[in-house]
Nucleic acid binder design. Structure first.
Length: 192
DNA sequence: GTCCTGATCCTCT
DNA sequence: GAGGATCAGGACG
């Protein structure tokens, strides 16, 4: 069951939490890979840490797109990160997917990122992008249809969600926004 | 044009 | 636990 446009229209903090436990699916020529989302971060309008803080540019334009749009960007000269755009078009808010629990297409993931332990295949925003075979070509792509989409969680029992400050922000000590979420006790997250 | 910074990850020690 | 790789975007002149 695919997540609908209405789902992504909700407040970004809620989407970030609701995405935990959902499944990110990529059907690529090399194979079908599936990962369960276990860690996310919310980036809101007016947030100094957001790429959209200083308004729309060519790079961040996907963030201003309709709900359910993919926002992929290049960072640190080497890596890519994958975000899900939320709220209505013109409101630049998004959820950064930080870690996945590998579910399907494990061999395909290892071919892409290298042979390593299961819990180290997708435990970081750029690693999961590599393992899932997501590229800049997927920037601005709609997540409401194949080949790249997210399906609802099947768990009836929802695990406790832990809230923390976001990773890597300069404000660090001063950042009181608790906008990072992960499933308690999950061994596939990027960092405690 | 030039400089600086970063929503990271890997490789050492 | 620390440091390096490596480059695009944005600020400033």
């Amino acid at each position: 069951m695919l997540l609908s446009k209405e789902f992504y229209l909700q407040p970004t903090e809620k989407v970030a939490q609701e995405l935990l436990g959902c499944y990110l699916v990529h059907e690529s020529p090399e194979g079908r890979t599936v990962g369960r989302i276990v860690e996310t971060e919310a980036y809101l309008e007016g947030d100094v840490a957001s790429h959209a803080y200083r308004g729309q540019t060519k790079r961040n334009s996907a963030m201003f797109g309709p709900p359910g749009t993919a926002y992929v960007y290049f960072i640190y000269g080497r890596y890519f990160c994958f975000n899900v755009v939320t709220r209505s078009a013109g409101v630049p808010e998004a959820v950064l997917i930080r870690a996945l629990e590998p579910i399907g297409g494990i061999d395909c993931m290892r071919q892409r990122i290298g042979d390593r332990p299961l819990h180290q295949l997708c435990n970081g925003p750029s690693k999961l992008v590599t393992a899932m075979g997501i590229t800049m070509a997927d920037n601005r792509r709609s997540l409401l249809v194949a080949p790249l989409y997210i399906t609802q969680k099947e768990d009836t029992e929802s695990r406790a969600i832990v809230t923390s400050t976001r990773i890597g922000l300069k404000e660090g000590r001063g950042d009181r926004h608790l906008l990072r979420y992960y499933l308690e006790g999950n061994t596939y997250i990027s960092k405690k």
